[in-house]
Amino acid sequence: MEQVKSMPRIGEPAPQFEAVTTHGTLRLEDYKGSWLILFSHPADFTPVCTTEFIAFQGIYDELKKRNVELLGLSIDSVYSHIAWVRNIEEKMGVKIKFPVIADLNKEVASLYGMIMPGESKTETSRAVFVIDPEQKIRAIIYYPLTTGRNIDEILRLIDALQTHEKFKVATPANWRPGDDVIVPPPNTQEMAEQRMKEKYDIKDWYFSKKKI
């Protein structure tokens, strides 16, 4: 029976690795100082993954403006990856500029818990790990094999995480840059009383919004 490995969790250090990619051998530590979106896809030369790669490439320039890098992964060879990204450029007119890990021995996929054996033992699910510049995991998203990801949501997630980082605020449901943000609730009775006198958009002592 295959051993079930524990998956990395939000707030924990991202597991270090060295891997062969379409841009050479890369280590996680090569990304220190920048944000990283490490994502897996089930397989090269498959239609849903192709749409996702085109969509990821579509936000790559916006990600770079935010000091975010992209790194793909699947259990395919580097030659398969090279052939696929060349095919995407030839047939769809989109040049894939980010590296893709060739994880043939499933080493990185196992480290990050990207394989869902109940769904497939030979393919990675559609996992997304957002790793911060100190190489801590800040968000995790999983989609099944059948369902392409909402790539726009990943950009929104980056904006929300970086807004939290910069202003120490939280962001409400469906928040978009420019919307009001949530002021962290007070944690003492005295601060709760004080909060009601602040010039925020106050619904109640625990629920205040402000502009940034």
Binding site: H23, G24, T25, D30
Partner: peptide, 12 residues
Amino acid sequence: QPLFKVRSALRD
């Protein structure tokens, strides 16, 4: 060039 590529190339 991105820093990650430079670090990787310098290692090589």
